[in-house]
Amino acid sequence: MAAEEYRWTGKPLKIGELEAEVPIIQGGMGVGISRSSLAGAVAKEGGVGIISTAQIGYDEDGFEEDQAGCNRLAIRRHLARAKEIACGNGLIGVNIMVALKHYKEHVKEAVAAGADVIISGAGLPMKLPELVGETCRTKIAPIVSSKRATQLILKMWDHHYKRTADFIVIEGPKAGGHLGFSDEQLKDVGAIDFDGEVQQIIACKKAYEEKFEREIPVIVAGGIYDGKDICHALELGADGVQIASRFVATEECDASEAYKQAYIQAKNEDIEIIKSPVGMPGRALRNAFLERIKGSKQSVLKCYNCLEKCNPAKVPYCITKALIDAVKGDVKNGLIFCGANTGRIHEMTTVHQLMQELIAETAV
C-alpha cells in the first residue's frame, strides 16, 4: 500500500437518520469470527461493523452450563466494546440468525444495548419489527436471496406492523456460511441470474418506499471481493455492499491465528458446498472434519441450545462444537465457513489497509 490515504468520495450509506461514510458493511460471521474487535475497527474506518450473535459468548465463564445467559452478556459486552473502538465513527450492528433457539432474546438484548442496526437471515425474520418495537432507534434489515422472499417479508411487515424495512441485504450464491439457495442451484452458480434478481428486488421495494415515504437502501452481498465488484453492485442500483471473507485475514478479526491462516492458505479447490444441521446448504473449507462427517454421523454428546429446530439425536454433527473448535484454532477438526472467493486471499492485512484498498479501487 502506498502511504497516501484515501477517502470515500461517493455517496455515504444513509439508513434513516443514521449514516456511514463508507457504504461497506462487514458481514456477520459466527461463531466468534466477527465480534467487537473486527466490528469496531470497520466502523472506525467509516463503515458498518457487524457482530454475529451466534454463540457469541462461547468463551465466557459458565458457557458450558448456561449458553443463553452467557450469550446475552456477550452481546452487551461486545456492542459496548465495539463502540469504544469505533470512536464515534461508522455504525455498529449485529447479525442475528432467525434459526437461533433464543432469537427473540438476542434481538431484545441487542436493542437494549444500543445496536445501530440488526441484520437477520437464516430464515425469514417475519416477527422482527414486533421484537424491536415501534419507537426503537435500531434499524432492521432482512437478508434475502430472491424477489419472492423480499415481497413476502415486506408485505408481511406492512400488513402486521404497518412498517417496512430500514434497508435490505441481498445475499448471492457466492456468499459464505448458510445460503438461501437450493443444492441444485449451487451446482451451477454461473447459471443464476443474480444481477437480474438484484434489479428485480430494487424495483420491488420502490412501492414500499413510496407508501412509507422513505428510502430503503439495498446492500449487495456474496462474492464481493474488490473495488470492481463494489462498482458493479452500485451500477446495478445498490446503495452499498456487504463483505465478509476478506475481513477474516485481518489482524483485528476475532478468530484465532490458525483460522486466519486457513483462509490465507486455501485454494479454490478447497472450497465446497456442505449440508448444515440447520437444514440449509453452506459453503466451507474442506478439511479432515468435513471428510469425517461424509462417512458417518458424529455423535452429539452435549446440546448447546443453539438452533430452534435441532434434534441432537438426528443431526449429523453439533454445529456449535464444530464452529467453536475452528474459531479456537483446531482448523482440522472444526467447521470453517467461507465465501466463494476465499481462494483469492493470500496475505494478512489490517482493517485500515483493506478499507483503504477497497476505497482506492472503487475510486479508480
Rank of each mutant, 00 (worst) to 15 (best):
Q298T: 13
E213S: 14
I216E: 05
H232G: 00
E347I: 01
D158N: 14
G30R: 12
I92A: 04
V98P: 07
N311A: 08
R286K: 15
I118N: 02
G196L: 09
V144N: 04
H232S: 12
I219P: 01
A284Y: 03
P217T: 09
A149S: 15
A233T: 03
T350W: 03
I324D: 06
E65G: 00
D188E: 14
S296M: 04
A203Q: 14
D116W: 02
H106M: 10
Q265K: 15
E45C: 14
R163K: 15
A2Q: 12
Q298A: 12
E251A: 13
A99M: 08
K101A: 10
I345A: 07
I273H: 05
F337W: 13
C338V: 14
D193P: 06
P312Q: 11
D195W: 01
G93E: 06
K101T: 01
K83Q: 11
E252C: 10
Y58L: 00
L186D: 07
V241G: 01
Y208V: 03
Y6C: 09
F63G: 02
A82P: 04
V107E: 02
S182I: 10
G295T: 12
K260C: 09
A3L: 14
W8E: 06
G240E: 08
R163S: 13
K332H: 13
Y208L: 04
G93Y: 08
E257K: 14
K83G: 10
R7N: 13
E269G: 13
G93P: 03
E269L: 01
G47I: 05
P277V: 06
D330C: 06
D183V: 03
T362K: 12
H106K: 03
A238N: 06
D193R: 05
N341V: 11
E65A: 08
Y225Q: 07
M280L: 15
G295R: 15
K228E: 15
E308C: 02
D116N: 14
G222W: 05
T250S: 08
D193H: 09
I359K: 10
I56W: 00
E60F: 13
E361N: 08
A322E: 12
N71T: 12
R286G: 03
H78K: 09
T362H: 04
F289A: 04
Q261H: 15
Q185P: 02
S120A: 13
I271D: 06
A80W: 06
V132Q: 02
D66L: 11
Q200G: 01
T150Q: 08
I119P: 01
L18V: 00
A266N: 01
